[in-house]
Write a protein that binds this DNA or RNA. Structure first.
Length: 355
DNA sequence: AAGGCGGGGCA
DNA sequence: TGCCCAGCCTT
């Protein structure tokens, strides 16, 4: 296996991807790209990267950004805690590191949102330090080459593949080596239908030798989807619509939504009406606008949108003043960061209007 | 050690 | 539909 690094290095120079964050040694840009690319495909993250760097070209501008602006730039990318942690880390860098990104693996890893993978990525790409990256690509490549049955999502697996990756690492050029093994995973050693005929290390691969590529990597945990029923209430008055910001330890933290009631069973229009009457002591008209099933990795959301109308403006004001909701003009809705579930259905939910 | 966190692409 | 993606944080 001694020539593994040479083989993938050679292959990388010929077939590797040209990516904007590879054209620079600026640790800030590399950091941003790595956070965006956590659990995110390169294609999906590309535009976000450009917009983000344009809006926040350096650590200081990111540190002092408004939360809304931040979430707006992240809107649609998912895993929103990444954005909040990113800003938290930027503030740490400004306050404790003189606005300079730390230059050792250990110090980099103490920053919020930076784990073993991202610390190794920044350390190697920006400073050429000898730390092997271990991401989904690396797990797949190494587990196939060695036909290793240890589940990659166990602590034993993490330890095994991390130390293996570091043994194989080309210490003379860690940056290129790390890029090479990840590109090999992304372009050739793909999850389904790997292109083993084009693989520079197929003769070293135990899985290829036995035709068992599909058996690797081995995973232990199963994903189960939790079913939730979200009943969104659409209140509109005088070209204003009621919204609220999501908080707590739940999905979409920091994004906005319409007032919502969650239920264990589907809610009907009548149930919503009763529910509101108990809660507000006021009578309202309720009409169902739209039903949508929305899948997340770990949750199956059944969303129903209801239009709610108070019989009088006075009632609306009295009710509204007892809540912690906000209102926003309909024509300013595009400034508000919403989850994709809401963003994608705005046109169907609202009266014709310029948004 | 386990569970939670988005959204999109692909077979 | 299920799996995967340049993973990490909290409990």
């Amino acid at each position: 296996m001694t020539n593994f690094p040479e083989q993938i290095r050679e292959w990388y120079f010929q077939h590797g991807r040209k990516l904007p964050w590879r054209e620079t040694k600026d640790p800030y840009k590399i950091w941003i790209s790595e956070i965006i690319l956590q659990q995110t495909r390169v294609d999906q993250g590309m535009e976000y990267f450009h917009r983000f760097i344009k809006a926040f070209p350096n650590v200081k501008s990111l540190a002092k950004a408004s939360e809304t602006k931040l979430m707006q730039l992240w809107q649609g990318l998912g895993y929103y805690s990444r954005a909040r942690n990113l800003q938290y880390a930027a503030q740490t860098i400004v306050n404790e590191h003189n606005a300079t990104i730390p230059q050792t693996y250990k110090k980099i890893k103490t920053l919020k949102g930076i784990g073993p993978y991202t610390a190794a990525a920044i350390a190697s790409f920006a400073y050429n330090l000898p730390h092997a990256v271990v991401d989904g690509n690396v797990y797949r490549v190494l587990s196939r080459i060695y036909a290793k049955d240890i589940p990659i999502d166990s602590s034993e697996g993490e330890k095994f593949f991390s130390s293996l990756a570091n043994e194989l690492l080309d210490k003379k050029d860690p940056a290129t080596h790390n890029q090479a093994i990840m590109d090999l995973g992304a372009l050739v050693c793909k999850p389904a239908k790997p292109l083993c005929g084009h693989c520079p290390v197929n003769l070293l691969c135990a899985a290829f030798a036995t035709g068992t590529q599909q058996n690797y990597p081995v995973k232990g945990k199963r994903i189960t989807r939790k079913i939730r029923h979200l009943n969104f209430l659409v209140f509109i008055r005088n070209e204003q619509i009621v919204i609220e910001k999501r908080s707590g330890n739940d999905i979409w933290k920091g994004l906005f939504q319409f007032p919502v009631f969650e239920s264990t069973e589907p809610f009907t229009t009548a149930l919503i009406k009763t529910h509101l009457k108990t809660k507000t002591q006021l009578s309202v008209e309720v009409t169902k606008l739209l039903e949508k099933k929305h899948l997340l990795t770990h949750q199956e959301l059944h969303a129903v949108f209801f239009r709610v109308e108070f019989t009088s403006a006075k009632d609306f004001r009295e009710w509204f003043n007892t809540t912690s909701y906000e209102t926003i003009a309909l024509n300013r809705l595009n400034k508000i960061p919403f989850p994709q579930l809401i963003k994608k259905n705005l046109k169907k939910l609202l009266p014709p209007c310029e948004y």
